[in-house]
């Protein structure tokens, strides 16, 4: 069931490819604004690079949450899926996984390019990819709760950021912290372990909250 739902989600995303590319372009533009605004000097850039890339990834992941539920909610597909699939958790998980595959994973793949632009060293680039690989699924998971709550609202976008961004703070702290430690040649296994714990914790708790959120919106 999950596989079939996942295939449907991926097909749906593939049919509106522009929506997938836009968050990536946003990610690229946001990061490249910083050298223009701060200073092009390499020393400063490499120091703030980890934070800038992480914040940009956070915002890009958040902006792309719309595609998760909105269309399916408005044409009634979401309601039918929840009624007929037998397991609302599979529906939600399929949406979260496909959101990560179409937004989180491309961000991970793109991040070394931006890291080079931010003059980060190879140690930090490895850590950046690793933390984004563990961290972006958490962003998709937590985001699905916020999106589920705001999907029925007309002005959901700004509200979504108010709901979701405070909950993203722990993952931002550990993600950016690990990268800046790696850049200074320090051990960062502790942060990675914490992020893994966040991932497992949210993987087990978020589907419950997310289903509850959608059920509220569908009422």
């Amino acid at each position: 069931m999950l596989a079939r739902l996942l295939k449907r989600e991926l097909l749906r995303h593939w049919r509106c490819r522009q929506d997938l590319i836009n968050p990536l372009i946003f990610f690229l533009i946001t990061v490249s604004l910083f050298p223009l605004a701060v200073a092009p000097g390499s020393e400063l850039l490499s120091r703030i690079g980890s934070g800038v890339i992480w914040v940009a990834a956070l915002l890009a992941a958040m902006l792309s949450l719309e595609s998760m539920y909105r269309d399916d909610y408005h044409d009634g597909t979401l309601e039918l899926l929840l009624l007929q699939s037998g397991s609302p958790f599979s529906v939600v998980m399929a949406k979260i996984i496909s959101h990560w595959l179409t937004t989180g994973l491309p961000l991970v793949i793109m991040s070394p390019l931006l890291a080079v632009m931010m003059q980060m060293n190879s140690n930090a680039i490895g850590a950046l990819m690793l933390t984004l690989l563990i961290g972006t699924p958490v962003l998709s998971l937590i985001g699905s709760v916020g999106m589920g709550l705001t999907v029925g609202l007309r002005q959901g976008g700004v509200l979504l950021s108010l709901l979701v961004l405070p909950l993203y703070i722990p993952i931002l702290i550990f993600g950016a912290g690990a990268v800046s430690r790696a850049g200074m040649g320090m051990e960062y296994g502790g942060q990675i372990a914490f992020m893994g714990a966040f991932l497992l914790g949210s993987l087990s708790l978020v589907p419950i909250a997310s289903v509850a959120a959608i059920k509220v919106s569908l009422k």
Partner: peptide, 13 residues
Amino acid sequence: EVADRAAGVLAMV
């Protein structure tokens, strides 16, 4: 009522 339940989910999260 919808507002109550939605905000309730958020408070629990």
